[in-house]
Amino acid sequence: MIKVNNLKKSYKDVQALNGVSFRVSAGELFAYLGPNGAGKTTTVRILTGLAKRSGGDAWINGFHIEHEALDAKRQCGVVPQTINLDNELTVFENLTIHGLLFGMPAAKRTQKIRELLDYVGLGDREKTPVARLSGGMKRRLTIARALVHSPRVLFLDEPTVGLDAGIRRRIWALIKRVQKKGTTIFLTTHYIEEAEFLAQRVAFLDEGAIIAVDSPRALMSRQGAWAIDRVVDDNVKTIYFKTKEAAREYTATQDESFSFRRVNLEDAFLALTGKKVK
């Protein structure tokens, strides 16, 4: 569904993307995990036609992102990192304009908008000006807007950034539901738990390059299954174990305080890059 070959992007002296390649299958939820400035948003901007590539190629559902730009864009729904709703217009009007941009006939458009507003829990807010919605509602509305034209691929660029834990979980449930309907999802995030919970495969991105792609479980298991964090000389030192028993045996020999937990994607990222995602 998404095919990216050696994609490059440079801004004057800065190399934002350094030859990125990956494939995302139809119906898959693929997460792009990396720290701020790794190149996540740049990738989304190029794939969705908001920025031009400096090199390489990419296809969305078989359509080249530049040579067949309009066809490629018809396949995509985009939820940008910065909410870009029209605050002066109502909830319904925002979605109507999106439907018009994608050439949807009036009857189908209205029906789809009403369905989606119910789907994201905003069915009773049709006539509310967007300015009066909360941050979580705006985010749900942005997701609904991206789905109005029934895209084959949904790009979610940091969809839960700045939201509190409760709203974040509600958005995750919504994303899962969208994927279950068969939509391919490309998610960028710097939240470890988001990638772990949602993604079938995760790509680690650092300094404009992909350093690993695999399922969350496979990436995490490279380190082991359990971890113990200890404070040593004002630094947190983490030791990894294959089994819970091995970790317990180790803790039995320790006097000082420690925390005992499962290995997560942060550990895997740290092992590969020497730095944390956040």
Binding site: T48, G49, L50, A69, L70, D71, K73, R74, C76, V78, P80, T82, I83, N84, L85, D86, N87, I97, H98, L101, F102, G103
Partner: peptide
């Protein structure tokens, strides 16, 4: 300010 131009850029319009 509103970044609405991006919505137009991401849409299949010339």
């Amino acid at each position: 300010y509103w970044h609405i131009f991006e919505e137009f850029q991401a849409a299949p319009i010339s």
